[in-house]
Amino acid sequence: MISYLIRRLLGTIPIVLIVGAIAFFLVQLSPGDPAMFYVSADAPPSEIERVRERLGLDQPIATRFVYWFGQVLQGDLGVSFHQNRPVLEGFLAALPVTLWLAFFSLVIAIAIGIPVGLFSALRPNGMVDKFATVFVFVGVSMPNFWLGMLLVLMFAVTLGWMPAQGFNTANPWEAFRSLVLPAITLGYSQAALIARMTRASMLEVMRQDYVQTARAKGLRVPVVLGKHAFGNALNPIVTIIGLAVGSLAAGSAVVEVVFNLPGIGRLVVDSVMRRDYPMIQGILLLTAGMIIVVNLITDLLYAVLDPRIRYD
């Protein structure tokens, strides 16, 4: 197990580096000159040239890549054009908001998705299942930003229960309130996916012989379902939750912009707007690394949940 873990962790390094290289070229080859963002509109060409030199953009792209890559290998992600501070600092400053947002979204997605899936599997085509079908359909087809705006309209504008936008850091309670609507926005579609997978997985497992054995032993229905069926249904559900983490990372960009939250998602969007190359590259690299770690955790969970799966 330990040696497997070490091998997997070592294996992630080349993946992260390849992601880094792709990120670099995608960003740097996209049209637009960053220097233009850091000079006044009527600046003379000499002024622009000076800024380009300062940003290192006067070098050929190959030179820039080798230099950047060398720095990355030493753990240095460079300095943000816009923030004038190390990329890592800027990233870490924005990270907590996004992590909290992702955490609450995931809690909502799991706390709603699994029960909805479970209960709709109990009676396929029953009342709960029909309701759940609509819930899932709406969840997977409604765009995040639209749900976000609906929620704001209802709970912030009309009812005034929640802040419409921004991240209020006055105290933890206000900070939490700032994240409620964004977390629901982000969590709902994931809840729908988890519900769908839970239902399918439970229906599959409930047909298995060992569930019949559990019933034949006289076990009560909640024990048959909870202990014998659900335990076996968990594997694909864990897969979906692992994927949900990736989707949350992507979805947070939209939601953070809609709700004006100072997280990684907004930082990406802002950095793209400002052609802040080092920042974009750094975020892509770090996010990729985090998602790879989540995948690794997912894989390890499989072995925890099912004694037949062994890594060695």
Binding site: Q208, D209, Y210, Q212, T213, A216, N232, D306, R308
Partner: peptide, 11 residues
């Protein structure tokens, strides 16, 4: 039951 492998809970 007939098939003891599938009739026992694997986990």
């Amino acid at each position: 039951f007939q098939e003891p492998l599938t009739a026992l809970n694997p986990i």
